[in-house]
Design a binder for these strands. Structure first.
Lengths: 308, 308
DNA sequence: CCTTTGTATAGACATAGCCTATAACCACAG
DNA sequence: CTGTGGTTATAGGCTATGTCTATACAAAGG
């Protein structure tokens, strides 16, 4: 058994196809066939059922492939430790970002980052906090960018910046005429929210449920997957929505007319990196942190914030 | 990097000596030297400081060796999974046993076990519960034999048998003339105990502290490391000690005259196996369990027991 | 300064892993 | 029943890698 063979069975499990898996491993199909056969003989176990098309792992094969993944992850960790010791700023950095941050933060720093560190291959996936936490724990993700992650013992949080919340109000609402507004002044029936699962939704709920006047279950309520959509809903159908500061800064001048600030203490969220405590790519992650902090406009003024 | 090389650095870390480590790996010293050098070149890291004698790992070397151990453990796990699937009853079973069980249980089953399963290499280490738990978690031990282990989330307990406690009393004590005794009747000043760390000591303390008449810190108190020694102390210096059932059964007829039973509910302890939840050698451990349960005399009568 | 003890290097050999070419298998169309 | 396309397995040759023996080199001790 060797590490290579384990990579082969994991690749074959991914592709369920010898030719494709072989390409993925940069070897020919016969090589892959032979090596897998050899491993199967050594372990005296049929890992793949080749009678089916596409190929499927056997029951025991599933277990072995999963274990192979564990082993390969540990192998990469070892290599990463050596690399980092050498101050080697190369490698892959797999980042998970929540949607309400991704759209506005990524354009701001990705370009700078890949220019400054051309040897780092950046892989960004958009996913909700819950999944980021899960993937971090499984070791499929190097770092997450979230807004106030749950305190997990195995994870570590690194604060990046705070961003305030702003209301985007339609001309039709009473709020439009105010200069500063209070969360309690928002009519829950007029409030557009993201769909379930987004932590930004949860935060706004807790902000507005403080006012306890949300009867819920009334009239029509559309739940959107993106902040941009919420803004459009307000523009066309009236009402109000709440957006984070980076989203606000991104608006056109025309749209900014519909922005209203909250009265102090201004509701805000804390954006930070989350990493597994055992993470060995801390060097790379530190580069990420400093790039983000340099690129993001210095948002939080000295005013009182209410961090949700 | 390959698995072999990792075994080499782990072996060299153990032996701190190329020739010995090479022997341990069944290769020649030049082979070991070359392979380690090769790994060091590949990772671009000096793993061992050869200027010292004996050789020592460098700082980064330490980390890499630890990670190599993790990797090797996962590799063995993988092989073990395949073996078990094949119903292969071979392999190594590393058992940790607490001292107060080891002396009396091991002679009873080890012989049977190795005869019934000659392909299993048994490795037994005597250690206190605390260390057994630690080694199980680190994966250095396959299974532990303990008396009521703490409930650790990552471990699983498998009950084996219950054994009662008995008092071994000197002729000089008042207890000698009684047929059945109560824990409260034992004078703590006359009671011989094992040294700190033994769970059997703790259990007896909790049994006798119920009677709350242990002023402690009085006169001379010798703490022994073995039950056999406690018995000798009673024989020579008087007083009383408490021993588990298997130890009692092992006594000569002469000595059994000094044994007194407790009144019901008879204090007892529950002996069981402890394994890591992720343990893949469950098949082997099941064989161990059935051999032990067959060999150990059926101890607990139907009488009421007070399991400590 | 030579011996002892320990590690590194050199050169030879076997083999493990890879490649190309091709066989074998299987489903399906004609 | 047979040919064809898609897929995996086998064969034979080449190279790189891991291993060995023999020996050089280095450091410490008498």
């Amino acid at each position: 058994m060797n590490i290579q063979q384990l990579e082969y069975i994991v690749a074959l499990d991914q592709h369920r196809h010898f030719v494709q898996a072989a390409e993925h491993c940069f070897v020919t199909q016969p090589t892959l066939s032979m090596m897998i056969k050899k491993l199967e003989e050594e372990l005296n176990v049929k890992i793949f059922d080749r009678t089916k098309q596409p190929i499927v792992p056997t029951a025991i094969g599933r277990q072995l492939i999963d274990q192979a993944r564990v082993l390969l992850r540990e192998a990469r960790r070892l290599e990463e430790m050596a690399k980092q010791y050498n101050g080697d700023l190369s490698g892959e950095l797999h980042i998970g970002v929540i949607p309400t941050i991704a759209s506005y933060l990524l354009p701001a720093f990705v370009q700078s980052f890949i220019q400054e560190h051309p040897a780092i291959r950046l892989r960004v996936s958009e996913m909700i906090t819950e999944r980021i936490i899960r993937e971090l724990k499984m070791g499929n993700l190097d770092v997450g960018i979230v807004a106030s992650a749950a305190d997990e013992a195995t994870l570590r949080e690194i604060p990046l910046y705070r961003e305030r919340f702003f209301a985007f109000v339609s001309e039709a609402t009473a709020l439009f005429d105010k200069q500063y507004i209070l969360p309690t002044e928002i009519d829950p029936n007029e409030l557009w929210l993201l769909e379930e699962g987004h932590c930004f939704r949860t935060q706004i709920q807790s902000l507005c449920e403080l006012s306890k006047n949300s009867p819920s279950g009334n009239s029509f309520q559309y739940r959107s997957g993106s902040i941009e959509t919420l803004i459009r809903m307000v523009e066309r159908s009236g009402g109000v929505t709440i957006i984070p500061e980076l989203a606000m800064l991104d608006l056109s001048e025309d749209r900014k007319k519909f922005i209203r600030s909250f009265q102090a203490p201004v509701p805000a969220r804390e954006v930070g990196l989350v990493v597994n405590r055992e993470q060995v790519k801390m060097h790379l992650i530190d580069l990420l942190r400093s790039t983000i902090q340099r690129v993001v406009p210095h948002l939080p003024s000295d005013e009182a914030l209410q961090v949700l």
